[in-house]
Amino acid sequence: MSFLEMRNVTKLYGAVPVLRGLNLSVEEHQVVCLIGPSGCGKSTLLRCINGLEPISGGEILILGDRVSGAGVDVNRLRRDVGIVFQSFNLFPHMTVLENICLAPRQVLGLSKAEAEARAAELLERVKLGAKHKAYPDQLSGGQQQRVAIARALAMQPMLMLLDEITSALDPELVAEVLDLVRDLAAEGMTMLLATHEMGFAKEVSSKVCFLFEGVVHEEGSPQQIFGAPTKERTQGFLKSIIEAGRL
């Protein structure tokens, strides 16, 4: 039994199909990278998994339990599935510490002291221990994204979804965020990430999925996908990436 399994998932925005019968499985402790051209459905796929977008057809299972469709407690599901967004989405009226403590206190019912202890530990880990009293607008993009990761980790999720988390960062800030993801991967965190950082995907992932027209067009080990893609579309996509100097 896979940790996460998506079976024949479809997603329509109005009449426009974004996912068209997509199948994907993620094993525990795997890092799966989603690559593909803009608009191929990477972000949508991630948002369907934790119920931020309801799916139009098919089903999504986590440890064999169906987490899509009617009757699913999405608030319960989201405790276990963390997501980090491209644009950080920190709460600007709260300090870094308050950002991290909010959900553990309100959702998990931790006491203030427990939540703050957990947050302090995570802030050390993302190397922002000194910034706990800062407000998001006082931090750099890289620092904000590391806080966002800490905020998601504070719920102690089983699965992390990372939605192009370095796309909004200045080039010199990308490394600090990727280092953190690399650490998480090394610790065995199950992760599903949409990314344009091909070098990073090649290095960190256990499996790479090339999304095209709403389905997983080709999947395989990073060596196979980046080294010897079999499908024509995959080859074309990687060729354009290489020409752009991004791999």
Binding site: N50, L52, V74, N75, R76, R78, R79, G82, I83, F85, S87, N89, L90, F91, L102, A103, Q106, V107, R151, A152, M155
Partner: peptide, 20 residues
């Protein structure tokens, strides 16, 4: 995106309104 971020952490609609 603020609503989305709060909901993605497991806060329900009213918690999201109240705190975020």
């Amino acid at each position: 995106s603020q609503m989305m971020a709060a909901r993605s952490l497991g806060l329900n609609f009213f918690q999201t309104m109240r705190f975020v």
